[in-house]
Design a protein around this nucleic acid. Structure first.
Ligand SMILES: [Zn+2]
Ligand SMILES: [Zn+2]
Ligand SMILES: [Zn+2]
Ligand SMILES: [Zn+2]
Lengths: 148, 148
DNA sequence: TCGATATTGAAAACGGATTTCAAAATACAG
DNA sequence: CTGTATTTTGAAATCCGTTTTCAATATCGA
């Protein structure tokens, strides 16, 4: 059993929540995909195999995943909530192509450290942060150049 | 006349838009405040002196400000659009206190440069970015400690 | 097994952004 | 100055993703 599954089941027990078939189906589907899907897109994909599961349940379950730490909630400014699987406690930030929607993940320890420095300088206690670089991925940049 | 006023008037001319009393009132009110107000809050504040101006007009005008570059549109993840005055072409990022809502601005050239490095490494063309550090400002952190 | 409790799915409600539309204001050519 | 085409306005309606409601159903521990 995957580590995330255990974490989720533990969370259910701890909070005296129930282990339902829907939750298990959604959990497995969520862990299987590895993307930054909006609730809507994830629901549409899931529905193909499990038409009985409602949007509300998907939404509530994804929020549970975020609460117990196996999912990260993302918001790339397009008004859609997105979720991705969290692996261990690794952290990363994102390059977001505004043309094709492609998401590239990156990790930069120097930036992370500088964020801490900034916070310290302002006596600020960081709980979370958000860093996104918006622009064009290589493919879309080439296309744009070509079309001029 | 402030530089921003000129920029806005130029923009109106260029786009063949009209110079209305509402737009001028909103412009002056916007330049006078220096905060990160949501459309709603700005509207409520403006309404005290100018009860005749409608929310839709305020909303549309703030968007115009963003288009012509005298306002920056912000989104601190609370589902409210926020606007702040842009001074020249300076850029800054934000520390956001999740307890009291206080916003602290900062500028860190090293972080900015590292972002460019990251983008280059991924052959990505940056058009914009977003960096926010969420947590507790000094006052709220002290309070929280005191209440344990 | 029973019964208290939690969960489900459909539909409704919510909340902020945006659009609609008819009346009013503006720009500008004559 | 007009007159008129065009834009803008404010109120209300609409949009659209998120969240809640609620009655029926499922879970699970005693
Ligand atoms: Zn980071
Ligand atoms: Zn990611
Ligand atoms: Zn920056
Ligand atoms: Zn700012």
């Amino acid at each position: 059993m995957k580590k995330q599954e255990e974490l989720f089941l533990d969370y259910l027990t701890r909070k005296r929540l129930k282990n339902t078939s829907q939750r298990m189906i959604i959990l497995k589907a969520f862990l299987r995909q590895d993307s930054h899907l909006s609730t809507e897109d994830f629901y549409l994909q899931l529905r193909k195999k499990h038409p009985g599961i409602g949007y509300a349940t998907v939404h509530r379950t994804l929020k549970l995943f975020a609460e117990c730490g196996i999912a990260a909630e993302r918001n790339f400014g397009d008004g859609q909530m997105r979720f991705e699987v969290r692996h261990d406690n690794e952290h990363h930030d994102h390059l977001v192509c505004t043309e094709c929607g492609r998401i590239i993940e990156f990790e930069n320890q120097q930036i992370e450290q500088l964020q801490l420095d900034v916070a310290q300088k302002h006596n600020f206690f960081i709980k979370d942060h958000r860093l996104e670089l918006y622009g064009l991925c290589q493919a879309c940049f080439s296309n744009d150049q070509g079309n001029i």
